[in-house]
């Protein structure tokens, strides 16, 4: 099962800054293990962020993104106490969603 993300969201002057840390191996599918066998690709393909159920960011990820990705973005709006939810899906169909209240 996928591990939890750490999400921070803070509103200031009508803009919300969101910072997300995801636990994921992000294997490219091009690396080999010590016995020379190819390590299968395993990476996040899609990510979305919702503010009170309204989509504010949708992104496509790929194998060039590092292990344990970090994503920071801002959107207009958002107030203290609002919900901010992030979901990712990977190429194996595994998914993880976490939610925080905007600070």
């Amino acid at each position: 099962m996928a591990s939890p993300m750490r999400i921070r969201a803070a509103a200031k002057d009508g803009v919300t800054e969101v910072r997300v840390l995801m636990a994921h191996v992000m294997e490219t599918g091009q690396r080999k293990d010590s016995s020379g066998a190819l390590i299968p690709a395993h990476f996040i393909t899609e990510l979305s962020a919702r503010h009170n159920d309204k989509l504010v960011l949708s992104a496509q990820f790929g194998p060039s993104v590092s292990t344990n990705p970090y994503l920071a973005f801002k959107f207009n709006g958002g107030a203290k106490g609002d919900k901010l939810a992030v979901t990712w899906v990977d190429n194996k169909g595994d998914t993880r969603s976490d939610e925080v209240q905007i600070a």
């Binding site: 591990s3 939890p4 750490r6 910072r19 840390l21 636990a23 292990t67 344990n68 970090y70 920071a72």
Partner: peptide
């Protein structure tokens, strides 16, 4: 330092 993934280990 912004977004140090060590935080994921800390949570664990």
């Amino acid at each position: 330092a912004d977004g140090n993934p060590a935080e994921l280990y800390e949570m664990e």
